[in-house]
Write a protein that binds this DNA or RNA. Structure first.
Lengths: 213, 213
DNA sequence: ACCCTGCTAGTCAAACTTGACTATAGATTC
DNA sequence: GAATCTATAGTCAAGTTTGACTAGCAGGGT
């Protein structure tokens, strides 16, 4: 699973109805273009694809007064909403060391009830632990890890990463259980989209040095 | 950059000359099909593509006695070898939280001189630190991290991950400086490929529970 | 003699991703 | 007042990835 479907679906859902450029801007506000494949082509492709699959409904709209080509607005369907929740739950539960999917899911975690979020994260930890022990059991030869040579370092990296993630997850659980953030059904939600008159402080143009290769 | 080019190029290089199925098997031995996109289609595609680009030379070979279609053997060129080293160096140096590229690079790290490996890893740490401080400076609003709401947790995840990776990298540097493993020019190298009569203990069929969604 | 399974080696269409490109309208500059 | 810039909204071809499929041969059972 790539992160793009979750990101696009979630973004449309927050507006109820949105056109591609709006989604693109929201995701940019999130910084998603830096940590996921949220690039124009992928976004528009995902919108069309999901419209074809019945998760979104496409409405043709007259060109905006601000110029540019005619827009297409997308409205989320019942099926789309279900799929969106399914994706969030899956991404929160499963361990697969893909930062982009994980990050996207955190972005939408508050759409769930608080108790469910905690439950999913706890299941995530169980998943990490299961994965960890399966790796150590399965990949360590009986005659000690040295037999793998430097290849063993790959395993070591996996384990280290898994442990770090379990720790971070524990921290997040603690913060959520401690009452942080506003979850579904707890009053007005935190809006992760830009107001119309607000400028995007994280817009493209100022690059982060992650591309300093 | 995806991991597939590095993996395929490196695998061919270890044999000097190899056909697609051999590469596929080597990568499976590495467990690469589990942590990267090393699937048949991608492998054969990468071979053809790199042959077109002059990194490999394709030789048509008669079908093996064991049946199956006629094979194509690929031989690495001078340019291919250079590219291979370039990719390893880049992957070791740059920080971009992609496990697959990182893992692949570790697999080939011993092809470099020990001193260079250490130097590259130290540069990696500098890169991580630079990235870390740019994130904290850039993404934390002046009025405290709370303004971002739960979105701040994404940043938190990044930072946590970056720190964990820096720590792991430090450990690896220490082990290498402590004399672990056999690097280029230090006698016979560790062979990460299967001998002909050896069965693959990590072959597909036994799945790891990372797909336990 | 016949079938079935499994291994060898690889192909293919469909889907996805990338990054550069288009076209329009208002704003700014010279 | 012409030229350039910027923002809007999106398209497109080229490249990549996926997962299912093909086809030949060997060996074992019946």
């Amino acid at each position: 699973m790539s992160a793009i479907r979750l990101l696009v679906l979630g973004a449309v859902r927050q507006h109820g109805r949105a056109h591609g450029y709006q989604v693109r801007n929201d995701l940019e506000y999130w910084g998603a273009h830096e940590w996921s494949n949220a690039k124009p082509g992928s976004i528009y492709h995902a919108l069309k694809q999901m419209a074809k699959q019945g998760l979104l409904i496409a409405h043709e709209i007259a060109p905006s007064t601000a110029g540019g080509p005619p827009r297409t607005e997308y409205e989320i369907t019942e099926a789309g909403t279900e799929e969106c929740f399914r994706l969030v739950r899956e991404a929160l539960t499963s361990y697969d060391q893909k930062m982009d999917v994980k990050s996207a899911a955190i972005g939408f975690i508050v759409e769930l009830p608080r108790a469910e979020a905690v439950a999913l994260l706890k299941q995530r930890i169980r998943g990490i632990e299961a994965w960890r022990s399966s790796v150590t059991e399965h990949y360590v030869p009986e005659d000690g890890p040295e037999q793998l040579g430097h290849i063993g370092e790959i395993m070591n990296l996996w384990i280290h990463t898994a442990d770090a993630e379990a720790e971070w997850t524990q921290g997040l659980i603690a913060r959520i259980e401690g009452g942080a953030y506003t979850f579904a059904g707890e009053g007005e939600r935190f809006v992760g989209v830009l107001a119309d008159d607000q400028e995007n402080p994280y817009a493209t143009g100022e690059r982060h040095p992650e591309d300093a290769r």
